[in-house]
Design a protein around this nucleic acid. Sequence first.
DNA 1: GGAAATTGCGCAATGA
DNA 2: ATCATTGCGCAATTTC
Lengths: 165, 165
Amino acid sequence: MSKQLLQKISNTNQKGVSVIQNQSHYSALNPAGATGLQQVPPLVPASPGGGGKATPPNKMKKTGMEKDSDEYRQRRERNNLAVKKSRMRSKQKAQDTQQRVNELKEENERLEAKIKLLSKELSVLKDLFLEHAHNLADNVQPPASGGGPGDLCHNNNSGSNGSSQ
Amino acid sequence: MSKQLLQKISNTNQKGVSVIQNQSHYSALNPAGATGLQQVPPLVPASPGGGGKATPPNKMKKTGMEKDSDEYRQRRERNNLAVKKSRMRSKQKAQDTQQRVNELKEENERLEAKIKLLSKELSVLKDLFLEHAHNLADNVQPPASGGGPGDLCHNNNSGSNGSSQ
DNA sequence: GGAAATTGCGCAATGA
DNA sequence: ATCATTGCGCAATTTC
């Protein structure tokens, strides 16, 4: 709502000379001379009438480049098609990329969850090891007395894994 | 990469004078047949697509909506600006998304590597456990004999995890 | 050199 | 009513 004032006023002239140059030929409205200040020669003058006003830069590659030309129309149509196709592709690509992001994010979460799980398992096992080590160090080796912490062989690990997914 | 630049340049320089160059091709003179490719007939039967707006004999809702109107010109200019801005953003967004994909891919690789590592660690520890259990089951419980596989207390685990990122 | 593909840009309809 | 989005066509340029 209020931040478009400083962009490219460069081409937005405001000196009073609105050089709005329509490169069309029709211009009964704006016959040459009105603006007087007219540069930027249209590469495609396409000036048909050629009456009095000389459109000097008649630099068309081919004679007969007029808009009514079959050649022209055909080319335009082809190009329009190509443009459409290209844009469609572009859009699709962007979409695919976005989807890729989603997939990757998902997988990322999965992987992190797995890491968490593995870390936990590892932690448990290590604790068990430490405990065992302590028992050994304390020289406490009761064959199978009370249900103390000496019962190391029971691995209460859940299904453990080994297979991913 | 350099295409845009060149384009811009071609449009602006060469004269040093920034002219608006309002390319309203097609227009009054443009006959109807130009492009029959119009799926959605606009409320205002303008000429084909793009900048086509003319069909001179037209009932615009607003008197003074003609091209020479100040109002019109102003609106157009504003819209052009908005369009440009929007497109810029769109492009930027696409770019960001692409970058995001790359980042995510990288992180995924990292995570997978970590998983691999953790899995390996876990595997080793489990093997140790099994071995120990075996020894117990075989009733082989040498207190601390030679450096056989019974040396369970050595945890060659490096710092490994604990910290993320 | 030529055809298809990109790209920047403007217009108009439409959405918010 | 204003700005933002989007589809479309044109033309210049690039790519093949």
